[in-house]
């Protein structure tokens, strides 16, 4: 089992790597499209602003690699901004076109305190995971929600999560293990 974590200058790559290492998995960060295409599981992490993250992704040619990978049915996990970038568009930064791996768009959160920061239960399941975001997906591909916010979305071989499994303690580790067992 080989996991490739996209390192394009906009993600907490170290924490994602550490989370997989704690599960005893062969994991490495990469900027190489070939690594992304060849891995058993590819991970698109992401924090920060959508426009600069997408620019970094495209500069490394990872956008095209991820599209090819998902088209070919390769299991791919998007985390937080990685989920939002996978949508068709996001209204962040005045409107940015996404990778289109998931239907729908990312919109700014309009209720509660924003950024939405902290642990919140995800249904179905009921486990609490750690969230830190100001935008959220509006998508028909949602498979789980948290307080009305899309928490998990899936289309084909792409799975996007709004929370940070790498920062979600034992519940997060269990979630990553499930991703690995399906890869």
């Amino acid at each position: 089992m080989k996991v490739a974590v996209c390192d394009y200058g906009a993600g907490n790559v170290r924490s994602v790597l550490a989370a997989f290492r704690r599960l005893g998995v062969d994991v490495a960060s990469t900027r190489e499209p070939a690594d992304v295409l060849g891995a058993d599981l590819a991970v698109l992490p992401g924090v920060g602003s959508a426009a600069s993250a997408l620019a970094g992704l495209c500069a490394a040619g990872l956008d095209e690699a991820l599209r090819q990978r998902v088209e070919a049915g390769g299991p791919t996990l998007g985390i937080c901004l990685g989920l939002q970038l996978a949508l068709e568009e996001t209204e962040e930064d005045g409107g940015v076109r996404g990778l289109g791996l998931l239907p729908g768009r990312a919109v700014r959160l309009r209720s509660g305190r924003v950024p939405r920061i902290g642990w919140a239960r995800v249904e179905p399941g009921g486990d609490a995971f750690y969230f830190a975001h100001s935008y959220a997906a509006e998508t028909e591909a949602a498979t789980a929600t948290s307080e009305g916010v899309v928490a998990i979305a899936r289309a084909g071989s792409f799975l996007g999560v709004q929370f940070h499994p790498e920062k979600s303690g034992p519940a997060g580790a269990r979630f990553l293990e499930q991703c690995l067992s399906r890869a």
């Binding site: 907490n12 170290r14 550490a18 750690y130 790498e166 920062k167 303690g169 034992p170």
Partner: peptide
């Protein structure tokens, strides 16, 4: 960051963008 699976903030003497970026790069969440 390597050892713990919960978020953490680092502060104290952060004076510049470079300071902050280095700490996030090293694995801090905030």
């Amino acid at each position: 960051a390597d050892a713990l699976a919960i978020p953490f903030t680092v502060g104290g003497g952060v004076r510049s963008l470079a300071d902050a970026e280095a700490l996030l790069r090293a694995g801090a969440d905030k």
